[in-house]
Each structure stands twice: as structure tokens, then as C-alpha cells.
Design a protein around this nucleic acid. Sequence first.
DNA 1: CCAAAATTGATATATAATGCCAATAATATT
DNA 2: AATATTATTGGCATTATATATCAATTTTGG
Lengths: 151, 151
Amino acid sequence: MDSIDRKIIRELQKNGRITNQELATKVNLSPSPCLRRLKALEERGIIKGYSAVIDAKSYGLPLTALIRIKLDRHSEDAVRQFEDRVRRLDEVIECHVLTGATDYFMKVLVAGLEEYEEFVRKQIHPIGDINSIDSSFVYGTVKTTNVFPDI
Amino acid sequence: MDSIDRKIIRELQKNGRITNQELATKVNLSPSPCLRRLKALEERGIIKGYSAVIDAKSYGLPLTALIRIKLDRHSEDAVRQFEDRVRRLDEVIECHVLTGATDYFMKVLVAGLEEYEEFVRKQIHPIGDINSIDSSFVYGTVKTTNVFPDI
DNA sequence: CCAAAATTGATATATAATGCCAATAATATT
DNA sequence: AATATTATTGGCATTATATATCAATTTTGG
């Protein structure tokens, strides 16, 4: 992982479908070594994959909810139960365990407020052992990027 | 935007570098109409781009911070000032305006706790008009996906 | 039920990816 | 510091893929 690898990564974060030839030009290599570095990064799992960036509203999911959830109990069973159930929910785009008082943070994509309320009522509450749910909705987006800072 | 378009989108979210031929097979079309739908989705801005998914830790940014920020004043100037400055910060991967009491939510990627404290001290506080900053750190990740639910 | 429009599939051409080999550069060893 | 070893690079030939064009088919609206 040298500065050329990091540059390859940032270029691929900017444009995941750039051709190897263009990528090679951008990082000042010829196509062959550039491709070999790329394949090595994939092989090592540093590049975990590639994804299309989609406008959620156009797709039909205009509402993004950010949710903080605290559990009642923290027994191994309660935690595993919660995490297993959350992983299977297609509406959940991200879920992280946090430091501090709030146990979990999730990002959820839904069609609207009604759908969100149904999601919480039918998918989250039934998991059980939930102490509190604090929902916020995304009003507007100041910035989103997939490109990591240069280090 | 029909069910074929949505399927194309989900396949491209799973694998942004899938070849048009494979994509066509997966959505039960021949390559030509599949490519034309793809280009149309790009043209309409529904596919906003493509990006490599990178392991942040391997890249050298092992710490993800989730930050909630409230502003002191909400004058047009204070808001514009804050948002303009935030947009220029490379460490900020996402920043959203929220409903409810907390004004902004940001996801920030840094090399460690020291770097995070320096980021807050040198990049955020100097913006001014900030009422409160509430930081949480990602301990573990239960789920992350780029694939939207089937609707 | 017909006409117009949109969508589809096949084919030919252009572009890019991939594998292979020799040359170069970097690193380690004594 | 000189040499051996290893890693990395660049060019070329082959294979695979993307893209543009056109006729055929399907869908949609009156």
C-alpha cells in the first residue's frame, strides 16, 4: 500500500468504471502494472467491490431515516438476536455499533413516512429488548462523497 | 423506471463492474437493449456514477466518527458559512441536514483519536456559530450494503 | 382493430482487458 | 561497494467486451 495504490483507490472511488488505460494514465503507469496493482488490491480485499451510485428518490425511496437504538439488555443472546434480525432487513443500508450511550446507529431507506412507521412497528419493535428508538430524517444533503482523503 | 430498470440498478449496486453481457443475462434481456437502458439511466442521472468500495482501515483510516452538530444561529449567513466550509473538508464523507433538534449529521473518516481531536479543533470549531458537537465512534459494523430494497 | 411509437435482438466494428515475456529498477547480502 | 535476488515495469499479441446501426417485434393509444 504505497502512494500509487492510494491514488488508484481514489481514482476508482471517483469513477469505479474507469478503464484500465485511463487509470494507468492518471497514476502515471503503463496499463500492465496498473492492472496488476488493481488485481492485487482486489485480491487482498482492500478493494471490496464496486457499486453503482443511485439516486434513491428516483428509484422510489425518497426518505432516508437515521436511527439510534438502545437495547434493554446486553446479554449475548439479546445482542445476537438484534444484529441477526437487522442484517436481514433490506431497508437497512447501514448499521453500526457505537461508543457512548447509544448502542446502534442505522441508516434506513423507505418510500415515505407511513412506510417508515410500518417498518419500525413491524420490523424493529418485534425484535424485542429495545429500550429506545430515536429517529431523525434527512431534510437535505450538504455533502456526500465516496472518495477518501489523501493521506 | 420499471421493474427491469430497478433490477438493472440492484445488479449494478451489487457489482458496479459487471459486464453488459452478464447484466443482460441477469435481467433477461439481450445485450443491446440492456446497454440502452443502462445508458438512459446514466443520462437521466438516476445512476449518478460508479465507485469502488474500499476497506477504510487498510487504506489507513481506521476510525469512523459520527457527529451531530447544532448551530447557535440559523441566519442564512451562518448556515451558508457552515455548509460551504464542511463541503471543503476531505475528511467529511457525508453531511446531512436533519429534522428534529440536531441540525447536522456527519460521517468523518480519520486515522485515529488524535487526528479526530485535531480535526474538530482545527476544522470544525473555527467555523464559528457552533452550539454543540456530539461525537460517537464506530466500534463495529453490523451491516453495510449498497443494494436498495426491491420495491 | 389499426397505426404510431417504443423496445428489442442480431451483426459488424471499435475499444479495452488480459496473459506472457523481456527489460528495468529496487532491495538484500556479503 | 559490488553483486545476486526479487519485485516491478512496459510492450505486444490474443481474447473479450462495448458500442453503433438497422430490421423485426412488441407495446401503447386512439
